[in-house]
Design a protein around this nucleic acid. Structure first.
Lengths: 271, 271
DNA sequence: GAGCCTAATTCATCATAATAAATCTAAGCG
DNA sequence: CGCTTAGATTTATTATGATGAATTAGGCTC
């Protein structure tokens, strides 16, 4: 029917090398090879940096052509699971999936989903206060200093739409930095992901809506007060400030026309 | 739901600066080609099902060899962005990233992160009550019936560890089904993802810890009461029930020894 | 007109060869 | 003796062409 080049159908075959191919009868060979490599990695509990066999060995191991092995490697590489280098001592090795790549891949999913601002803020209002409550009293001095610097970066309200956008991005970076410090990796990831989605939005300020100076000032004060609360370990205080901050931010966002950029999120090339 | 902030999709977002090879250094050719194809798709605002040029055209278009084009296609395919078929009328076409694939890719990221149960439950306790509060009064009859059937599936406490595991999985499926019905796609995704992580855990019940009949019974009652509350549109009630349910579930989970299966999440072949 | 068969189209896989990149080695120079 | 650097080596990267397999469309038979 669909697979008579290889002899995998009969159950009692003693396939040389391919000891383990129970399911996987509908997928292309590169995908199958990629899956086998994944299993191979998991079985040996390889970790970041551990090396995989080189191309030639894989060709021999899986009895497939060079091109097929390469396509399999590309699949794994696209998922961020391996990295490959050339040269002596080169080859492929296990690579931890970076947060950046994970967010990009997840962004591809939501590209088709048209999230609304209220969707995102509904979650931010729940998660961000909780996160800062956890964080209170657990941040080291350098992180606190970093946050404080970010909070003080823009001492004045924006005078141009472009500047306002910069401040907006900067504010989101503040939240992303907080998320990075979170002990709860999942919580931190979701919050950072939302910050990134918001940062990727294209903002069209309504021309007739003058920047709301009062709201802006309150947002800035929130950030400063938040860092203070975090420093003195005041969890409930931090939570309350963040909640208020989120509500203010939501109001500001709703006062603007926004549109999701219809681009796949690109990975930031380490800049 | 207040979806009023979601803007209608407007045409033309393309920034003229970044349309053509801005920075193409340092990356391999297949990756560059994949990026070009992505841009090509976005610029034309192609949607699910729209077809891409065939292999030969791409070879001519990008002036690279067939192998390179194929590797680029494998990259995009691994990310779920395209699907490829053979035969007349075959070729590659744009494919919506499936929820399943998105969860697998995200799972690869957390494979290296060793999430704890308390990390997950901290978030569940925040998000799931909120979700059901949104859902109250917004579910159609067939969904309600489906949920009710799931809630009634196991009328008796488990008599064996294996059966208990089945019930556990079933309960998580209940939550995943709720998440699927959520209007807030991001909220639903995060909740379904957590359910999947929990389902992928390998459970080792402590041999000396007899199944807690009372807790189990309360959990079951929660599910039934929850569906009732959802049906009559009682948002606050649904929220309260779910919060209580989450707390109970957390207690039960903590009474068990669990270990994350050290496997990359596989995609379920068909669903 | 229904059903089967053949042919055309398109991707899938394999094989081989030449190229490029990274590293290591050791000769050459100061 | 130590540093530099040219070349050799290892490994992945790209290219090319040929053959195979899957799928559909159209035609042929009855």
């Amino acid at each position: 029917m669909m697979k008579n080049t290889a002899p995998p159908i009969s159950p009692k075959v003693t396939d040389p090398k391919v000891t383990d191919a129970p399911r996987a009868l509908k997928r292309s060979r590169p995908v199958q090879v990629a899956d086998q490599i994944k299993r191979w990695v998991v079985e040996r509990d390889l970790r970041k940096g551990d090396k995989l066999p080189n191309e030639a060995e894989m060709i021999a191991q899986f009895k497939v052509s060079k091109g097929t092995v390469r396509e399999a490697m590309r699949i794994l590489e696209a998922q961020g699971l391996i990295v490959t280098k050339t040269g002596p001592g080169g080859g492929s090795s296990v690579g931890e999936v970076s947060k950046d790549r994970a967010m990009s891949l997840l962004g591809n999913y939501f590209y088709f989903k048209d999230l609304s601002l209220s969707d995102i803020y509904q979650i931010r209002k729940l998660l961000e206060p909780e996160m800062v409550a956890n964080l209170a009293g657990h941040l080291d001095d350098s992180t606190l200093a970093e946050l404080r610097a970010m909070a003080h970066q823009y001492p004045e309200p924006a005078r141009s739409p472009e500047e306002e956008k910069q401040q907006h991005i900067s504010s989101l970076a503040f939240h992303a930095r907080l998320a990075e410090a979170s002990d709860n990796d999942l919580l931190g990831f979701v919050i950072a992901f939302m910050a990134r989605i918001l940062a990727d939005l294209t903002v069209y300020r309504r021309l007739y809506a003058a920047p709301n100076k009062e709201l802006w000032e309150r947002g800035r004060r929130h950030q400063i007060e938040l860092v203070d609360a975090l420093e003195r370990g005041d969890g409930p205080g931090a939570r309350a400030i963040m909640l208020s901050h989120m509500e203010g931010a939501e109001t500001m966002m709703n006062a603007q026309e926004m549109r999701i950029t219809r681009e796949f999120m690109a990975e930031t090339p380490t800049s």
